[in-house]
Design a protein around this nucleic acid. Structure first.
Lengths: 254, 254
DNA sequence: TGATCCGTTGCAAAATCTGCAACGATCGTT
DNA sequence: AACGATCGTTGCAGATTTTGCAACGGATCA
């Protein structure tokens, strides 16, 4: 692993917290100012950081457009999108698509609810991995040792009283999800929001993505939302079929 | 400028074209395979690249979530969003927000049209800088020498017969836009799509962002779209006011 | 089974990066 | 208005880090 590159890349998450000046960056990196300057300059030349009018640095536009291209290269997303839109037209609620990669689960597509009350989320945002229905589906598909490994390394923040409290509970939940082939999140992340989710599988049967329908209590009760499960599963299966049919490369988590 | 970091960063745009294996990356970089391997490993450790099941590399999720954070740090976007939504509710068409940075203009927010016929665009996507109404507004505000500089370095692809053909025409258009304080794109990017745009200004009067309303011919004619101009300008002014009122530069977290 | 392709590792030479110290500019204070 | 402090910037020499090489092992294919 290259030290110089390692340091340079460490600057980016740091700047994601907010703009910072040279001294601050050097401090946080634990290097001399001149070193930090040279790293920042290189990042700047590539457009990854931007220098504000007040000379402080922040993340640059190149990062945003690259991320955009990264998402457009995801086959699943391309295939799934029309299905998500159709499902949204049928049920009206927010529809999400998520994938798992390394230690994160993140939304790669979203169709907004037609109801005035919407849940907050954004494409590209990492999901609450210990409680989100889509996260459970994606992790439940991993081999058991990996599952245990990940479960033990996670934090278990108690977003609500119903949040998954610890690794043990999480593993139990994953086993259940794995068995039943679908998942829910009933107020585990935000008190008043429920989700039902179903997995999207590749040709080899492994889960490559997961989709969910989310709605706040004030619009539909959890029970009402659960009646949509068959529809969600059918949609997910349709995407799986299309994806398996013409997938040139399998993009699965190792 | 740091050579190692420079090389490492060059890998990312390369992978944005699509997944590539080690040999290909090494070739394109003009370095030995072992060198490319070490760079890729470092990028991998930071989650910027991801290794597919077939061992090829592609852009990683960390890039996407970082870009997400980068956008959430943009003050203008936060302030503008509710205004964009309201405008969208009034006119129904697609509403965009864009900023200029270095040599790119890109969308940082979007509210979808309520009509079935929608234009294709995505948050984070660089806009067609020579024709887009928002791009003209953002560039028109630059000092004259910078404007000329940029205009001469740009390419002028003829998307349609009405696209800006060359630097000269572009500079004339910028001058006009600068004068009138608003801009249009009438079929300059896609034959059937028109836009009207207005600038958002900071406390010092400089243009910090631009917003636009876009609609295809089949929904409203260009003339009809132009009748929305006063409303668009009022919205932009409202955002400008709110933006100027607050701290021009964001505060650093401790 | 043999040949080829690709990713991976250890090593020594060499180029690159690092920290230092000093400079200049900006800004706030006395 | 001058002084001091802060911050970004530059040239340099030493030293660490990086690089390319060559060889290895595993996989695929004929």
């Amino acid at each position: 692993m290259s030290q110089t590159v390692d340091r340079a890349l460490s600057i980016l998450p740091l700047l994601a917290e907010g703009p910072a000046d040279l001294g601050r960056v050097a401090d946080r990196l634990g290097v001399h100012k001149s070193t930090a300057l040279r790293l920042l300059r290189t990042l700047h030349d590539h457009g990854f950081v931007y220098r504000q009018a007040d000379q402080r640095y922040r993340l640059g536009a190149r990062l945003i457009s690259l991320a955009q291209e990264a998402m457009e290269n995801l086959d699943v997303r391309e295939i799934a999108h029309p299905h998500l839109v159709r499902l949204n037209e049928q049920v009206g609620h927010t529809v999400h698509l998520a994938v798992h990669e390394e230690d994160e689960v993140l939304y790669i597509d979203k169709v907004e609810s037609r109801y005035p009350v919407r849940m907050y989320s954004r494409i590209g945002k990492p999901v609450a991995i210990t409680v989100a229905a889509v996260a459970k589906l994606l992790l439940a598909d991993l081999p058991e040792d990996e599952r245990r490994n990940i479960a033990e390394q996670l934090d278990y923040p108690m977003y609500t009283a119903r949040s998954t409290p610890n690794a043990d509970g999480f593993l139990k939940e994953l086993a259940k999800v794995r068995e039943q082939g679908w998942a829910t999140d009933l107020g585990g992340h935000e008190e008043s929001i429920n989700c039902v989710a179903a997995p999207i599988r590749g040709a080899d049967g492994r889960v490559v993505a997961a989709m969910s329908v989310s709605a706040p209590n004030v619009v539909v009760t959890a029970d009402e939302l659960l009646t949509l499960l068959p529809l969600v599963r059918r949609t997910a299966d349709a995407i799986s079929g299309e994806y398996s049919g013409r997938t040139p490369v399998k993009e699965v988590t190792a």
